[in-house]
Design a protein around this nucleic acid. Structure first.
Lengths: 130, 130
DNA sequence: ATTTATGCAAATCATTTGCACATAG
DNA sequence: CTATGTGCAAATGATTTGCATAAAT
């Protein structure tokens, strides 16, 4: 297994994920980082996000219908996305280990992970509608 | 609201979703339909799949990391995808209405839907590994 | 006759990859 | 020195869209 190196880019990407607590997309992270380090490329951002989530330093949130998000908070938890403003929020639902156990019969399937994303309308957007 | 028309393409697409019970992708459906109706275009398939799922005649399964799937079975249910062979199966988990209720505090969020996809290794692929 | 649908190609969006060059170990 | 990382642009994969034409009501 190849070993990973410490680079300015990687440090910056990790730090930016820690600072942006709004579940940013790769694109949003890239734009934010480019304010301080204008030459960083999208490819580098994607590559490092992948690597950082593989080693568990950040969390990769796979969104079903839009760009994936990244999270500084790496404990198991779920998310809810507002269909109007597209923002993603954490959800207080401490049943991560319970969910897979709810399956009645998994036909010999070895379950490794599960992705659960809620969707709806956030409080702010409910207000705006009126 | 505009009204929808009956076309040979739409009928074929709906019928093919009913017949292919393996949660096909739009691409797979398109290829299958082209055996009988070679001139059908991918765009027509996508457009009709969208329309048919909007009116509830088929189910659109949004996959987090790969092409979406389509399902003839429209009742609320969940899916599990094998990371090896990429096949998608139904999961016996009759708690659809329970899941959203498990959220402790949704901060004024109006939950409309939720997507839950399990991932792992299916029985066949477990066997093949040995 | 009017409006929705089709087929094609081009566009879009998110992400990945090839490659030459740079740099960390 | 050598393997990993970077930046760029091009490639990929899934899906959508513009447009002229066709078909349904």
């Amino acid at each position: 297994m190849k070993k990973t190196r410490k680079t300015i880019q990687k440090e910056l990407i990790f730090e930016t994920v820690r600072q942006m607590k709004n579940h940013p997309t790769a694109e949003q992270l890239c734009q934010e980082i480019q304010k301080r380090h204008p030459t960083i490329s999208k490819a580098t951002v994607y590559r490092n996000l992948r690597q950082l989530s593989k080693i568990g330093k950040i969390k990769h949130i796979e969104m079903p219908d839009s760009a994936d998000r990244f999270d500084h908070f790496t404990d198991n938890h779920y998310h809810i996305k507002c269909n109007i403003c597209e923002r993603v929020f954490d959800v207080d639902m401490p049943y991560f280990d319970k969910i897979a156990e709810m399956i009645k019969d998994n036909k010999g399937f070895k379950i490794e992970t599960h992705d659960l994303v809620f969707k709806g309308v956030c409080r702010d957007c409910k207000k705006d509608k009126k």
